[in-house]
Design a protein around this nucleic acid. Structure first.
Length: 830
RNA sequence: GCGGCGGUGGCGCAAUCGGCUGACGCGGUGCCCUCAAAAGGCACUGUCCUUCGGGACGUGUGGGUUCGAGUCCCACCCGCCGCACCA
């Protein structure tokens, strides 16, 4: 007798082959609009293909796949596509090192990813597969660029930009973390360069407001709000009479204007040298600025660093009272924020206060708590205005409530032409050009006579040429491809040159979810009507590391494209789920240098795809980080999958003339009823966990409980056990599709994915008795069986009669009895 | 400093609307099956006390509301994440 046991290697390929051959998960765009099922667009963030997928990918796609399967089974038409974010630096850096063309390396990785997605059994509509590096895709990336260019949302300007000397390219603000390149960790330099930008700042308010319309985790919304950094205040003009130049500053506290006792400029401010010229401080200013500019952002930004600065030898006039106040240059003022210059109010701002103390400058309090005698110094610098703050030392405005005073001061400034209400943002325009090869070419041509000319749509794509030398030299490697660079001007047909920068890869991934909807459209990026059938993405799933970059850029794209009437939604991702990381067994982030990497390929080899998928979901709440434990996957393999398989094997109808079935027995009794009830309980539990929250860990534990219950009654009616096992297989299918399909087929002869999601029968969720919790003064003293739905006084009687309660009453006086029907009775004694 | 999220057995965690704390899994202990092992099955497993009936305690700390608090309120401690000289 050969032993029969759960062998994923025999089960998994069988189903993968069927799904691949039949294209089971493909879904039509339904141009006739005949399919009236509710749509569901389930999407995981597309992978950057590098080597082989890692365990985080497995979790990401296991999560999305469970949702996709669940939605299909509850009767929705589900779009669940896959693609690859295939342009990018790692493949190019690899090419520099090894000479292997980035396309070759990328396509090799893509093949590996595709292979593994099949072996994981992810239910993907493969007919929509795409790679952002394919001309059939980036043709439309270029088209979108041109659309943005037409609307002046893509533009070129010279600006101080972040330059990574290691990667030899510029970076977006969002790609600079603590002054370092987010990719290679090298210190970033600031350079004045002419670059391409997308005008995302035009959308700052809408990006902020519409966060209220989407179902995203609070922390992601908070990060976006933070990044947009909207603050309301006023722009106030300080004039330097000696040079006849006006300097506007931004302030959120215009009510403190009368307390401004000096004025500070950032070292990067373009007028600093000009102001100092000819004054006794000229040399000192040069030295200070040069020193400040060579400091690393970490050094300069150190929180407890003492305030430094140098006088400029000039004064500006405070617009509210004409007072001449001295100007300084100091590195605590940032060129990137506001106007690069500030009015300093040491009485009400900690930083200004610190500077004033260091340079012995006057401190004048202008806001005080009402009734107080004005001794609170610099307190309240950042605190919001309270109702009882009043202005003092503020001429005509003295005595006014601070909130009203602020309003009045700005209105007065506005009338005088010296200021106005203003809103400031931390968000900058998105720098999109990169001096690198492996990216989407920018479809622009420079002509000596016509200037900057967009490549006509019908000439797209501008294909990336093959080159020999990928080494960046401060300009794009494409600049060396002369055959490609030199081109006839589309306008005058004279000699012209192509733009040699490529686009940030975040441009590619900002619209891929739109292309999936109509992935094989050769005539357009998409058909607007098809988009209407699918967009927005109903459930987006990915890592929190994209909270700002990818997710903000995509939102900007959708809003801009909606404004062009190219699509009909305002937000790309209606709901977002951010998964936690799988950490190494040592609790640290997995990395090859720590030697704690768990390779999915090893895991699947040992335990199969179903066990791997279930384990990454069972390990804990899916939005939390969790450490990998090999004993954990063994548990899932044994207690969940192995035991279900054995049940199916034991209970399967093996012919015998009867049709196989796992129908619910009609009138189960005794143990059979207990098992049937547990099955309905599990249906209800799993359904609620999936539909109302992402509690896959508890859904799986409910399925384990059901399986345990079937084991507990080995001699119960086989039909009841078969029904329960079939239910377990059906419920397990979204998590472990191979075993779910296999066990279901063994028990019923049918394909589980063609079956509707089971319904919990409310009658079966009800029991005729329940365990009544009997408390005395809130402590549990007994539990007794009571009829479900019993009257309050009946429950009270049962409780009072119970042995445990009797023992604790000791003849004490009963003050009160609390009855919670079908749950508990609490006897309060004195 | 600002914003967000957490703190429950030896471990991961569960308790969904204020009602039995610790579901489920891991780990541990004992037993069954076996010539033996593997595999598998069954049972027990928060701490302390116990006359073995049971009892006391227990959800970061301290207070409060309540018949009843892991859950609500106040104050605080600790940890993680994001932002941060943002005017």
């Amino acid at each position: 007798m050969d032993e029969r046991r759960y062998e994923p290697k025999q089960i998994e390929p069988k189903w993968q082959e069927i799904w691949a051959r039949e294209g089971t998960w493909e879904v039509s765009n339904d141009p006739e609009n005949t399919d009236h099922r509710e749509k569901s667009y389930v999407l995981e963030m597309l992978p950057y293909p590098s080597g082989e997928p890692h365990i985080g990918h497995l979790k990401n796609y296991a999560l999305g796949d469970a949702i996709a399967h669940f939605h299909r089974r509850i009767g929705r038409r589900v779009l669940h596509p896959m693609g690859y974010d295939a342009f990018g630096l790692p493949a190019e850096n690899n090419a520099i090192k090894t000479g292997v063309h980035p396309r070759v390396a990328t396509d090799r990785s893509i093949a590996a990813y595709r292979h593994w997605f099949h072996r994981w059994g992810i239910s993907i509509d493969w007919s929509r597969e795409l790679g952002t590096h394919e001309p059939s895709y980036y043709r439309w990336t270029q088209w979108i660029f041109l659309k943005l260019f037409e609307r002046d949302l893509a533009y070129r300007k010279t600006a101080a930009v972040n330059w990574c000397p290691n990667d030899q390219t510029v970076l977006a603000n969002e790609q600079v973390i603590d002054g370092r390149c987010e990719r290679c960790g090298h210190l970033v330099e600031v350079r004045q360069l002419e670059q391409w930008f997308f005008r995302i700042t035009d959308y700052a308010d809408r990006l902020l407001e519409d966060l209220g319309t989407i179902d995203w985790p609070e922390h992601v919304k908070a990060m976006q709000r933070n990044w947009i950094g909207r603050s309301e205040g006023a722009e106030v003009v300080f004039g330097c009479e000696e040079l006849g130049i006006d300097y506007p500053v931004f302030t959120t506290r215009p009510d403190t204007l009368f307390g401004a006792t000096f004025f500070v400029m950032a070292p990067e401010h373009p007028d600093v040298f000009r102001l100092a010229e000819g004054t006794e401080h000229e040399r000192e200013v040069h030295e200070y600025v040069n020193r400040a500019l060579t400091e690393t952002p970490e050094q300069r930004g150190a929180v407890d660093k003492p305030k430094t600065g140098v006088p400029l030898g000039r004064t500006v006039a405070n617009p509210v009272n004409g007072e001449q106040i001295p100007m300084f240059v100091a590195d605590y003022v940032l060129m990137e924020y506001g106007t690069g210059a500030i009015m300093a109010v040491p009485a009400h701002d900690q930083r200004d206060y610190d500077f004033a103390v260091a340079f012995d400058l006057p401190i004048r309090q202008v806001v005080a708590a009402q009734g107080a005698d004005g001794q609170d110094g610099q307190d309240g610098a950042f605190s919001a205005h309270t109702e009882n703050e009043v202005l003092i030392n503020s001429e005509a405005f003295s005595g006014m409530n601070a909130v009203e005073g602020q309003q009045a001061i700005v209105e007065w400034l506005d009338r005088e032409g010296k200021g106005h209400f203003s809103v400031n943002y931390k968000l900058r325009d998105w720098l999109v050009s990169r001096q690198r090869y492996w990216g989407c070419p920018i479809p622009i041509v420079y002509c000596d006579s016509c200037g900057m000319v967009p490549v006509p749509e019908e000439q797209l794509p501008v294909e990336l040429p093959n080159i020999e030398d990928y080494q960046p030299q401060g300009r794009s490697p494409l600049a060396a491809a002369e055959d490609w660079v030199n081109v006839a001007c589309p306008n005058c047909h004279g000699p012209a040159k192509r733009e040699t920068d490529t686009m940030d890869t975040f441009v590619d991934s900002s619209w891929y979810y739109l292309r999936y909807c109509d992935a094989r459209n050769d005539h357009a990026a998409w058909d607007r009507r098809v988009l209407r059938r699918w967009m927005p993405v109903d459930q987006y799933i990915g890592g929190v590391e994209h909270a700002i970059l990818h997710l903000m850029y995509s939102r900007f794209f959708v809003k801009a494209l909606a404004d062009m009437e190219l699509l009909d939604v305002q937000e790309p991702f209606q709901a977002l789920f951010t998964q936690g990381m799988i950490l190494g067994p040592d609790g640290n982030k997995m990395s090859s240098s720590k030697g704690n990497v768990i390779a999915p390929s090893d895991i699947i080899e040992r335990f199969g795809a179903d066990a791997a998928r279930c384990y990454v979901l069972f390990i804990g709440p899916p939005d939390q980080d969790a450490a990998w434990a090999t004993t954990g996957i063994e548990g899932v393999h044994r207690r969940l999958l192995g035991r279900l398989w054995r049940l199916a094997d034991e209970l399967a109808d093996r012919g015998g003339g009867k049709p196989t079935n796992a129908e619910e027995p009609v009138d189960p009794e005794g143990d059979a009823l207990t098992i049937v009830r547990k099955a309905h309980w599990a249906i209800d539990k799993v359904t609620r966990d999936m539909a109302t929250r992402f509690a896959f860990n508890t859904a799986l534990s409910a399925i384990i409980e059901l399986i345990n219950e079937i084991y507990r009654y080995p001699h119960a009616d086989p039909q009841a056990r078969r029904f329960a096992a079939g239910t377990a297989a059906s419920l397990l299918f979204p998590f472990a599709p191979h075993l779910g399909a296999e066990a279901y087929e063994m028990l019923t002869g049918r394909r589980v994915w063609e079956e509707p999601w089971p319904d919990a029968d409310p009658e079966r969720l009800q029991t005729e008795t329940f365990e009544l919790v009997c408390q005395v003064n809130g402590k549990v003293r007994d539990r007794v069986n009571a009829p479900t739905g019993a009257a309050r006084d009946e429950l009270e009687r049962l409780c009072l009669e119970s042995r445990g309660v009797q023992a604790h009453l000791n003849g004490q006086e009963i003050a009160k009895v609390i009855v919670v029907p079908d749950k508990l009775v609490n006897v309060v004694v004195r």
